[in-house]
Write a protein that binds this DNA or RNA. Sequence first.
DNA 1: AGATAATATATCATATTTGGTATAACGTGA
DNA 2: TCACGTTATACCAAATATGATATATTATCT
Lengths: 335, 335
Amino acid sequence: MEKIYNDYSRDGIEIHTDNFRDDSLLRAGLKLNHLRMIVTIEDHGQISAAAEALNISQPAASRMLSEMESIAKTALYERIARGVVLTPFGSALAKRARKILLELREASREIAELRTGKGGSVYLGAVTAPAISLVVPAIRQVTQTYPGIEINIQVETSNILARELLAARHDFIICRIPDELNPRLFTAHEIGVEKACLIVRNGHPLLEKGVVGLHDLIGRDWVFQPPGTLLRRKVEDIFISAGVPLPENIVNTSSLLLTVAVVCKTDAIAPIALDMAEFVCGQSSNAGEACILPIDFEISVKPYSLITARERAMPPSASLLYDMILEQSRSLAAT
Amino acid sequence: MEKIYNDYSRDGIEIHTDNFRDDSLLRAGLKLNHLRMIVTIEDHGQISAAAEALNISQPAASRMLSEMESIAKTALYERIARGVVLTPFGSALAKRARKILLELREASREIAELRTGKGGSVYLGAVTAPAISLVVPAIRQVTQTYPGIEINIQVETSNILARELLAARHDFIICRIPDELNPRLFTAHEIGVEKACLIVRNGHPLLEKGVVGLHDLIGRDWVFQPPGTLLRRKVEDIFISAGVPLPENIVNTSSLLLTVAVVCKTDAIAPIALDMAEFVCGQSSNAGEACILPIDFEISVKPYSLITARERAMPPSASLLYDMILEQSRSLAAT
DNA sequence: AGATAATATATCATATTTGGTATAACGTGA
DNA sequence: TCACGTTATACCAAATATGATATATTATCT
C-alpha cells in the first residue's frame, strides 16, 4: 500500500493520534448543534431568544440544553431573573464550542476555496495608513499568486477593528490594540509606526520658509479631527511640551476629504497620516494641490501591528496575504 | 437582565459572533462522527481498518464516507491499490477535523477537572536536564496552587517527545526540535542551554590540578554515550577543534547509571548533562562519590525550548504549569 | 395576590439515523 | 483468467432525533 504522508515531517513519518474514543463528551452523544446552542445561549442570555436565533421553538431549545447537561454530567446554566446565565462549566464549554465552530467554518471556507479553484477569500481590517502603504502593494502581489482571490478590507478605527476581529469577522487586522481590550486575546507583530505630517495648499506662505518650526505655526488656521482623537491629542501634546500656545482657529471634521478640500482652498494647516498624505499629495486631482509642509519636528503616533486573534485558525489564502504584508513591512523598515 | 460578560475585555463589553448559520458544512449535516471518520481514514489508509478502529462494520464506514462527500460537495478520497487516499479536500478537512476533535477532548478534560474540583491534569515531556532543573521546582509550586493536580511526565529523547506532542499525547514538551521534523509545526521558547560537564570519581588524580585543560585529558579513560549522540559529538568536536587527539580508551553506554557506576569505580571521565551531574553529585549514595571536574572550557549542547504544537489548545492547568516553568527558566537565567 | 416573562415538562407525529447482513463491484497481482 | 483484498450498494429493523403544541412551573415585579 502506498504510504500516507501527513505534513508533520520533511520525509513522511506517520504520527497518529488515537481516534478520540475516550472523549467523554463525544461518547455521551454531544452534537455540533449542542455547541451552536451553548454559544447562542452565551450570546443572548435567554433560552427563548436563543431559540429564535436558531429557528427552533423555545421548548425544543430548553430540552436541548437539558440534554447537554446530561451529556456533560454537570450544570451548564442557571436561571436568573430574566433568562439564564452560564455556570463556569457552561462558560468553559462555550469557549471551546466557539473555537470548534470557528474551525469548522474555516473548514467550510477552505473546501469552498479548493473546490472553486479560485484563490480563496480573505477578510482583513486596517487603519488608514497601513491600508494604503502595506495592504495595497501586498494585494497586487497576492492576486498574481492567487488569481481570483477575493479580498475584503474594512478601513476603520482600531476600536472597531479589534472588536470585529474578536467577533471572527476578520482573519487579521492592522491597527493598534485598544487600551480597553485584553491584549492577551491577540497575537501582534509591530510592523510600523503611524507617522503624521502637516499638509498645506501649494503656494502656502509657510512654504517659502524652507523648514518651519513650532513657533512659525502660532496663530495659524487649522483643520483637525474631533477633540480626543489620537492624532489631534498628539499634535496638542507637541505644542504643550514646547510651551507653545495651542491653535485657536480650528475647523473640526473627521472627514479626510473635507480636510483636504479645506486645506486646498484656504491657508489652513492639517495634520494627517504620513502615508495618507503621500497618497493624497501624489494624486493628479484637486487634491494634488496640497503638499507636505517641511517641519523640524516629528509627529509619531502609536505603532500599529499585524494582529490575529489568539489560537484562531486562518485559511491558507489569509496566511499568504498576512505573510506578504509582514514581508512588505520589513522591506519598508530596511530602506 | 444581568449583563453577560465574555472575557474579551477588561470591563465587560459584549462581542458576538454570528450563530454559524451560514456554515455550509454545518447546514449540510456534518456530524462529529464524520470528523472522527475522516481522521481515522487518514491514519489508517483503509476503510475497513478505520471501521474496525471505530467499532462499526465496513459497509457502515463506507456509507458514512459517501455521506461526507455529499455534505462537502466534493470528493474526499479515492481508491488506490489497497485502500484509499485522501484528496487535497479530504486532507484539508482531516486537518481541521483533528483540531476540532482535540479541542473537544480538551473541553472534556476541562469540564472533568472543574467537576472533580481537583487541580486538573497535565501531560508533558522533557529531556533529562530540564526535567530536573525546571520541572521539579515548578511542580512543587504548582501543587500548592492546584492541590490534587495530576502531572504526567515523560522523560525521553527529543525525537520521541516531539512525535508524542504531534500525536497530541502531551500538552507541551521541553527539548529541542528534531532536525527531521518541520519546525513550523511547533511554537518554541528557548529557555535554556543544555550544558554538559565532565565527572570523575572523588579522589581522581586530575582533581589535584585545580582547573584542567584539554591537554590534561589526553590518553585518559572515558565513558561515552554511543557514537553519533549529540553530547558525544560535541565533546569530539571540542577535541578536534583544539587539535587534540580523540580519546581512545572508551566505554560506550547510553545508561546513565552505568556511566556513573563506571566513573565511581575507575579513573574514567564521563561527559554528562550539567543539570544531571549536579543532581547525581549531590546524592548521598554511591553516586555521591563522583564530582564535577573543573575544566577551562565549556561544553554547550544545543539549546532546549518549551514547545507546544501550533494552534493546539491547552487546559488551564497545563497553561499554568507552562507559565511557571517559563518563569523558572527566566529566574535561572537572571542569576 | 396577581400579572407577566420566561423556563420546564409532557406528549405526539414524523423523519432521520444508525447499525447490521448480504452481496455486487472494483482493482491488483500472479 | 482467477483469486484475493477491499470498497460500494441494497435492503432491513430498530432506535433515535427533532420539531411542534399544550400546558405546568418558576421567578420577579407591581
